[in-house]
Amino acid sequence: MAGAPPQNQIILAQPAAAAPRARGLAWHRVNRVQERLLGYALIAPVALLIVLLIAYPFFNAIWLSLTEKMVGYPARFVGFKNYADLWESARFRIVAWNSVVYTVGSIGIKVVIGLAMAAALQKAVRGNQLLRGFLLLPWVIPTVVIALTWRWLLDLYRGLINVGLHDLGIIGSGIHWLGNPDLAMLSVIMANVWRGFPFFGVSFLAAMQTVPQDLYDAASVDGASAWQQFYRISLPSIKGVVAIVTLLSTIWTLNDFNIVYIMTRGGPGAATHIFATYSYELGIQSQRWGMAMAASMYSLPVIALLIIFVVRYLHRDEAAS
């Protein structure tokens, strides 16, 4: 063709134009690999810590629960015998029921108090910040101190509560807070609620403060009462946070040890024994590690189901919105 470059020139021109693009692609690929390797390197220490401090003990505990392991002796595999023996034990069934009562009771009350606290503190009034800080105090005080204080408060003879009620003429003789089986459970729940309600309150408050004020203004214009605004606007808006906070607190409460151990040691009898204290009794006092691990593992399926339920609920909610 006239004016067309010679063939060899055409051939030579093509490699010259493709070379910079190929180099760019190669560099990009190498860069991505390096970034990936850097990412792995950065998370490696954390991953190692998780494996050593969480994964290994967790799987080791599951293994031990399937063995007849006594302190100082080698572990002998027995399958699900420990679980079966525990379930047949009337004492363990009491422990399981106590754990349910303790957890459900504590969480239920904490949710209500937390919502009330958040609703009250949501309004910008003078002294609000100070009050918020003050209400966080139970959360920052060590649990051991809280448990010891409540044990003193509820002492039959010298506890402030009995002495105060007696001096006010409300009671004639001391209430057996830690001796009556029902009151003992109520007492440990009270201590747990006192310790944990700030977490609920502060979390709910933070969530409520992300709700647009326009919604409340519009509701006011439409004549909605404060309760209606709370029930129809605040609560639906923060239900994700409520679900997560409740889930976390349920896990912590099911595994609680300090409060019950210090206040009642699981007594009177086994009236306040829960999974953690019973597991301690089996593992440390009786030296039966296999059985102790099985006792503590009983709460695992419940927790797993709760996690699945909450996660699915949140995903569904997210998809709907």
Partner: peptide, 21 residues
């Protein structure tokens, strides 16, 4: 005997005795 005695720690009875209870 009070039911609370069943929940005493190791020093609970010491304290109650010395408190004159």
């Amino acid at each position: 005997s009070a039911f609370d005695y069943l929940s005493w720690s190791g020093s609970g009875n010491n304290e109650a005795f010395m408190a004159g209870k």
